[in-house]
Computed example of a mutant assay.
Amino acid sequence: MDKRLETRIKDCEVLQLPKIHNRAGNITALENEHSIPFPIKRVYYLYDIPGGEERGGHAHKNLEQIIIAASGAFDVLLDDGNQRKIVHLDRPYVGLHIVPGIWRELLNFSSGAVCLVLASLKYDEADYWRDYNSFLKFK
Rank of each mutant, 00 (worst) to 15 (best):
L78A: 08
E64D: 12
P37S: 06
I68N: 07
G81M: 05
L77H: 00
V87M: 00
E54K: 12
G72D: 11
G101C: 10
L106R: 03
D48W: 08
N82D: 11
I66M: 15
L63A: 07
I98V: 10
L96G: 07
H58S: 11
R84V: 11
L46Y: 08
G72T: 02
V94R: 11
L78H: 02
K85I: 08
P92M: 11
H58F: 05
G72R: 01
R55P: 01
R91I: 10
Q65I: 15
A69T: 02
L30H: 05
E33R: 08
R104S: 06
P50L: 06
N108P: 09
L30I: 11
H60R: 08
L96W: 04
E54Q: 03
H88G: 15
D79V: 05
R55W: 07
L107T: 12
V87K: 00
P92A: 03
N82H: 13
V99K: 13
L96A: 10
E53D: 15
G51I: 06
D75Q: 07
P50A: 10
E54V: 13
G56H: 00
K61R: 10
Y45W: 15
E64N: 10
H34W: 09
R84G: 12
K41V: 02
I66E: 05
I66Q: 01
K85Y: 03
V94K: 14
A73P: 00
A69N: 02
N108S: 14
V43H: 03
E33W: 04
I86W: 08
L77M: 09
R104W: 04
E33Y: 05
D80I: 02
G56W: 01
P39W: 00
L30E: 03
A73F: 01
V87N: 00
G52Q: 10
Y93R: 02
R84N: 06
R91F: 06
E105Q: 13
W103F: 02
V76Q: 03
H60N: 07
L96E: 01
G72C: 10
I102E: 03
G51P: 13
H34M: 13
E64V: 03
Y45M: 07
K41E: 04
L89C: 12
P50S: 14
L77V: 12
I102K: 09
E64R: 14
I36Y: 07
R84D: 13
E53I: 05
G101Q: 11
G72P: 12
P100W: 00
L107N: 08
D80Y: 01
A73Y: 06
R91E: 12
